[in-house]
Amino acid sequence: MTSLDRALSTLLWLLALIFIAGLAHILTIFYLPTHFAKVPMETFAAFAKQSQLTLLPQAAPGASLTPFADPATVQGICTFDLAQGPLHVHGDVDRDRLLTMSFRTPAGMVFYSLTNRAAQKGKLDILLLNTAQLEALEAEDDAQDEGAPAQDLRLLSPTEKGFVLLSALANFPSETADAEQRVKAFTCETQEPATD
């Protein structure tokens, strides 16, 4: 073996090492969120009933279900499974106090979000659907053809399962109970799938 052969062989081994390291790195980055880690949805499923609004414990020293949560907010969640039917989220909002809502995949990624500014006449009324449910509803609209615009906001979910996170800001610690009431003012319910 000449010194050139030896150098080439070392180079090949080095390239193999870089290739394997790169592959291991990319695979773990892509598969960690769905395969290796506990997704938020699983954490919530342990204590929250599906399609029912459940208050999350407020962020406090020592432990939190949702790390990095704002301790000035009160949060509630509704987990959903659209296979059971569309999810209807509705409630009254206070115009002057911040309430935000985000619709998330099981891993917690946001596919839609809004604030209480989106409310019409002090109400937020949202229907979360999968593609089949949305198409069925649109067909129903066409059949009725009353020309009246639907009152509720229809949202298409990219995943069958996921959760809705509601957050109300307490401007002062003394307003925490009020913020809690503003979250509790919302109802989540699974609508019966259309039977026809």
């Binding site: 980055i29 969120p33 935000t100 946001v110």
Partner: peptide, 18 residues
Amino acid sequence: YARAMFAYTGELPLGAAE
């Protein structure tokens, strides 16, 4: 990378409209 980081930390980032 951010997606993997959220899975690692458990953080729920604010929605773009929030």
